[in-house]
Design a protein around this nucleic acid. Structure first.
Lengths: 239, 239
DNA sequence: GTGCACAAAATTGTATACAATAGGCAATCA
DNA sequence: TGATTGCCTATTGTATACAATTTTGTGCAC
């Protein structure tokens, strides 16, 4: 019998486990670098290791989990380089997608986007920063869905998940509320069907996010220990 | 004992199996829709179903294999919509990536690209159309690598794999040699470090490929049967 | 006291056995 | 004759058992 199942008789499968882990990572309940032991997870969810492994492999393909051979699975820790790459990729994909979205959006779509913002504010007011961040990501994903580009939406989904990890590691700004304004402006331009403006707003929003990261002065956590302790100058001698 | 192992005592793992299947799909040795039974594959490679499953799941995340619950794995059959989406995504990603590549490329990089073309021609001369197609895809991937954008390169890699399936299903043009010229021109612009030209050439190359597909007059195989038999007008009545 | 080597424990990788589910086929009834 | 329903078979989904590998702890030699 499971020692500590999350829910008594709920039939968890690999998909729901992957979704649960993914959500926890999005919401910053699981920090980058956290070990995700197969035995631990199979106890928690009350399923076999096989099922857990399937879920972990799925997440590793989205690069939110890193599987090290014979070492196990860990919540990914994107490097500085990867952080830049992720936002550069988003800057290639999302502005043009926002443009398409503005040209496709129905009244229902706009209502849905607005609802996202409302929920995000509610989460923020409730002090649930993690959930607010998750909803903020969903907002971006929703735009790709409105643009009717499933393939691009899938890619953006992965990039958003990785962005959440990047934010956990490298976020600098204290107030995350600055985003709200950008999202509001985006909704308006989409509601107006102004594709060109939507594209511009999304572009500058992403640049804004990108520049709100500590991507220059902070060597993060996982830089080589040698570098952290001795400094770059010493390294040159030792090699 | 394995009834028909590909190689006598070779230790296949899930990665090499996934790579082998992926290559076979790239090279059009496996047609879209082909059933990939777990038992068959475990016999062929001489490993257990567990290992095969891992490989198939990996490929399904790249959307080159479709796993239907309790039905099994099949080589994916991208729909017309997906086909458009894949090329639209490539048109977002690759031109700007080519621009970066042109600004990063070393002499070695250019040599590598040239070598790709040489190999591609060799495969074509040997009548190995599938391999030529595979190498042609690798050429695009190499450009993303030169641009030093691993994240984008991964996404392009997936899109190229799906493109191969799309070409298998919807290719119209007889001579695929037209591509060679485009690739040659691209190499030259990259060697010259002309980012703007590289971006333009890549863009028009992709538009060219996109328009070389039978994406309009052919309703493919899998449109809803009802639509095919009754026509859209009848549908409105019946709902 | 330090460094290395060996051994034990823990964790993942792989194989096999069992359970569940979808599709096909035949029998039955209208 | 046609459709519908129930069973059957084939195939996948899940759990468990075993093997391999890495890590960590201990002891011995220097």
């Amino acid at each position: 019998m499971p020692t500590s199942g999350v829910s008594k008789e709920r039939p968890y499968n690999s998909e729901s486990i992957a979704a649960g882990l993914s959500l926890a990572i999005h919401e910053h309940r699981l920090a980058p670098g956290t070990k995700l032991g197969e035995d631990d997870l199979s106890d928690i969810y009350g399923v076999s290791r096989t099922t857990v492994r399937t879920a972990l492999q799925s997440l590793s393909h989205q690069q939110v989990v890193e599987i090290k051979r014979n070492r196990g699975a860990f919540v990914a820790q994107p490097s500085l380089t990867e952080a830049h790459e992720v936002f550069e990729a988003r800057e290639l994909l999302e502005p043009r997608t926002a443009k398409s979205a503005a040209r496709n959006a129905t009244a229902d779509d706009v209502a849905l986007l607005t609802d996202h913002i409302v929920q995000e504010h509610a989460a923020m007011d409730a002090g649930d920063r993690g959930r607010a961040l998750y909803l903020s990501g969903k907002f971006h994903l929703e735009i790709a869905r409105i643009a009717n580009q499933k393939t691009i939406a899938d890619m953006i989904n992965v990039l958003i998940a990785r962005s959440s990890l990047i934010i956990a590691l490298y976020w600098r700004r204290e107030s995350a509320l600055c985003e709200s304004h950008a999202h509001h402006a985006l909704i308006k331009s989409i509601a107006d069907g102004d594709g060109v403006l939507s594209e511009e707003l999304m572009q500058s929003h992403l640049v804004d996010l990108h520049s709100a990261l500590n991507l220059h002065d902070l060597p993060a956590v996982e830089q080589d220990l040698k570098t952290m302790l001795l400094g770059p100058a010493q390294i040159l001698k030792s090699t």
